[in-house]
């Protein structure tokens, strides 16, 4: 070791300048270093550039409909009659919001509690067992969740949950429906919830773990219980991270297409109850793009709805980033 060091730092053995072979190698090293730098920079810029590129392409293809219809009528009209030239996105926007809201209500509490358990309570043995299985959930293809939803969730909703709820809570508009099939907002939300579990658990767990151990010990050594420590100290410190985890799950839920489209009913209406069928934006695009393209403006309308979806997700991400920044700032 010492001999190598001596060789490295001995000025006599360093003949980079005088030895032509060394110097050729030196040039090669510098060239490689520089080209690696610029290649990586180019790739990074290309990735960043994709977002405006996609948004621009969508805007360009959606332009015919934006030019002929008022934005307010596109966004806030319920009428979706392509053959009559009426394109109101509101049922689809509301469908997306309903399904996502139900999914978040179902997913956030259990996945945060799971994350807290795994980060704060579980012995290493349990963590080593649970985390790979949870990661596996994230790797299951969307279409498999869809099939599972059709085979299990939809009959469960239609045959068990709907009769039970309407018997006991039927007076509430939220639970009243004339759609007995089980295909609808609740089924879509439930399937989505299971799909975003692993994401929220993984991100929230990592960020809870990042809270310094000394903070936990400070609280524990005052005689706090573990739950008090988690609630008042760990979660307070990890607040921004938990928000970020939830938002990440939400963005995923907003854009998820396949599994939702298979169980949500796909009726272009504004849902009034969790049992009503809905038609979220991604399902609209996936079901219809490539068909009925002879209808004037239909293609532009679908791409317009894609643009709306993109803007909703973008707006969501920006808002959450601001929220996280504010939370971090006050800490």
């Amino acid at each position: 070791m010492r001999r190598i060091a001596a060789k490295l730092f001995n000025p006599k053995s360093d003949r980079a300048g005088s030895d032509p072979r060394r110097s050729r190698r030196w040039w090669k090293r510098v060239a490689l270093d520089k080209s690696a730098h610029y290649t990586m920079r180019l790739l990074t810029m290309a990735t960043v550039g994709l977002v405006p590129l996609i948004a621009g392409a969508l805007l360009w293809r959606a332009w015919p409909i934006l030019a002929t219809h008022r934005l307010t009528s596109l966004l806030f009209s319920q009428a979706w009659h392509p053959l009559r030239g009426e394109f109101g996105f509101l049922p689809f926007i509301m469908g997306t919001l309903w399904v996502t809201t139900v999914a978040m209500l179902l997913a956030v509490p259990p996945s945060l509690l799971t994350a807290i358990y795994l980060a704060e309570y579980a012995p290493v043995r349990v963590q080593r067992l649970a985390n790979p299985v949870i990661d596996l959930l994230a790797g299951i293809p969307s279409v498999v969740y869809g099939v599972w939803g059709v085979l299990v969730i939809v009959p469960l909703v239609g045959n068990q949950i709907l009769p039970f709820v309407s018997r006991h809570l039927g007076a509430l508009a939220l639970f009243r429906t004339d759609n007995p099939t089980g295909f609808g907002v609740l089924a879509g939300g439930a399937v989505l919830a299971v799909m975003i579990f692993p994401l929220i658990i993984a991100v929230a767990q990592d960020l809870i773990r990042a809270v310094p151990q000394g903070l936990r010990e400070a609280s524990l050594s005052l005689g706090a219980t573990r739950w008090q420590t988690v609630k008042h100290v760990v979660l307070r410190r990890a607040r921004a991270g938990v928000v970020a985890a939830v938002v990440l799950g939400c963005s995923r839920a907003l854009g998820e297409t396949m599994a939702v489209l298979m169980v949500v009913g796909n009726v272009p209406q504004i849902p009034r109850s969790i049992f009503d069928a809905a038609y979220p934006l991604p399902a609209l695009i996936a079901n219809n793009y490539g068909e009925m393209m002879s209808v004037p403006l239909y293609d532009a309308a679908l791409l317009g709805s894609a643009l709306v979806l993109l803007l909703v997700v973008l707006g969501f991400n920006v808002a959450s980033r601001l929220a996280v920044m504010r939370l971090v700032g006050t800490n």
Binding site: P212, A218, S219, L222
Partner: peptide, 19 residues
């Protein structure tokens, strides 16, 4: 918790609680 209430600890590095 009763033990730790009667026996306090001052750590090498200060860890102010996030409040």
């Amino acid at each position: 918790t009763a033990v730790r209430t009667r026996i306090g600890l001052l750590a090498p590095k200060p860890f102010p609680l996030p409040m």
